[in-house]
Amino acid sequence: MFTLIASPDTTSWDSDLARLPSPHILQTSSWADFKQSHHWQPLYVYDNNLRLPVLVLKRRLSPLSTSILYVPRGPALDWTNPASAPVLAELLSFLTHNLTPRHDAVLVKVECEARFDNQPIESIFRTSHFAPSSLHPQFKKTMWIDLRPKEDEILNTFHQKTRYNIRLAERKGVDIKDETSDQALRLFYDLHLSTGARGHFPVRSFVYYEQLWKSLLSVDRAKLFLAWHQGDLLGGVFLFAFADRVYYQYGASGETKRDFMPNHLLQWHSMCWAKQEGFKIYDMVGLPEEPDPHDPFYGVWRFKQGFQGETKNFIGAMDCFPSAGSRKLWNALYPLSKRWLWHIRHDVFF
């Protein structure tokens, strides 16, 4: 039976989460603490029998008292096990019949890692009055690199051109450094900002990245690598880490010495570090839904394809509106909130 916990022990919460079949960093207490500083209220839902923690994030829709409820990358169930279906059904019932009226929610959004073709899970969502969303805060597709084989075996699975580019960067003398200073984070952010401008994707304020960095670094769940060559900053990666998975969350690349292929070496260095630390999965975090050459992420898609990992295609966000009126209210307020956040705070809603 699911219940709401007022103030859980964070160590127990994260250890219970880590032992589950599909734990995600967006379900951790550290992510909850961080999002709380960005206008989300964490609601800690827990099943004592299954020792199953589920982080639900609540956000008010100003200026009204209404809110939305969002479950990012949860629950952490074994989506290949038929026994997960009734557990999901019970959770969805708790969200819609207990939390929704209590928090005056006009929308419940659940974004788990079940496969897109998992018919039993899709059926549970449908019978619980959830439908596929048109708004997915997280990518529906990603790519996982299996870190369990030996390093040379992992390298040999990459595309020939990717292996060549890694060796080229090494021959050119590109140096990958493990960074922990605030100054290094600022250098990464400035380069990430220019990367976003070239790729036409939004980049949040530096304050957001700084708070995120400090929040996750304090519990050893963040890593920053920068690529240098003779004093020139060429690129960087901002990684998340939790349980058995490392996430390539943010990347940055410059125009200087691009032909030295620093980003290929950055990825390989990150994978080797993750493997040495005992992680089993390197999550590339995001592939475009369709590899359209006009998609802003098409270049990223081509780059990631070179590592030839296993493509994961998830079911995506599922939405439940308590009434037709709540749907209309959300459709009216969300665009306004989205524009206001970007222009005033340089932030995005989710």
Results as ranks from 00 to 15, higher is better:
W268V: 00
W340T: 07
P288W: 00
A6N: 13
L57Y: 04
P120M: 02
A222I: 00
A197H: 12
M143I: 13
D152S: 10
A85Y: 04
L64S: 10
Y46H: 02
K214M: 03
H24C: 07
K214W: 06
A6E: 14
D178S: 09
L287W: 01
G325P: 13
V110Q: 02
V219E: 12
D16P: 09
H38F: 10
A222L: 07
I166P: 09
K275V: 04
N165L: 11
W228R: 10
G306T: 12
K338W: 01
N118K: 14
L135Q: 10
Q41N: 12
Y250W: 05
F158I: 06
H192K: 05
Q27M: 02
I5R: 07
F307M: 08
R327C: 13
D33Y: 02
D347H: 12
Y248W: 05
T162I: 07
H264C: 02
H24Q: 04
M1D: 10
P296D: 09
I145T: 10
P149A: 03
L336D: 04
F321G: 13
L329R: 07
L341G: 02
M261Q: 15
V110E: 02
R51K: 14
D33M: 03
Q249R: 03
I145Y: 04
T127S: 01
G251F: 00
K150T: 02
H200I: 05
E210P: 12
S123Y: 14
H264E: 09
F240L: 07
K223L: 06
P288Q: 00
P262E: 05
L92H: 08
L212S: 01
H229V: 04
A317K: 02
F34K: 08
E90N: 08
N118E: 05
E210W: 03
N313E: 11
S323G: 05
Y208D: 13
D244F: 05
V203C: 09
V203Q: 11
S128A: 11
R59L: 06
G309L: 00
L329K: 08
N81Q: 11
Y46S: 04
D244W: 13
S7Q: 14
P101T: 11
L52P: 03
V45R: 01
E111K: 15
A83S: 15
W228D: 10
P86G: 12
A6W: 00
F130S: 13
L92F: 00
P86R: 08
D292M: 01
L88I: 09
L95K: 06
W228P: 15
T96P: 10
T11H: 04
N156Y: 03
A274L: 08
A197F: 01
P75F: 03
N165G: 15
G231W: 08
S22T: 15
L107I: 08
D117T: 09
G74C: 10
E255P: 07
H136D: 13
R102V: 15
Q249W: 00
E153P: 09
P120H: 04
F303S: 14
C272A: 15
S270C: 07
Q267C: 14
W13S: 13
Y70N: 09
Q27F: 05
L185N: 13
L329M: 08
F349W: 12
P86D: 15
D9T: 08
L99Y: 10
M261N: 09
L265Q: 13
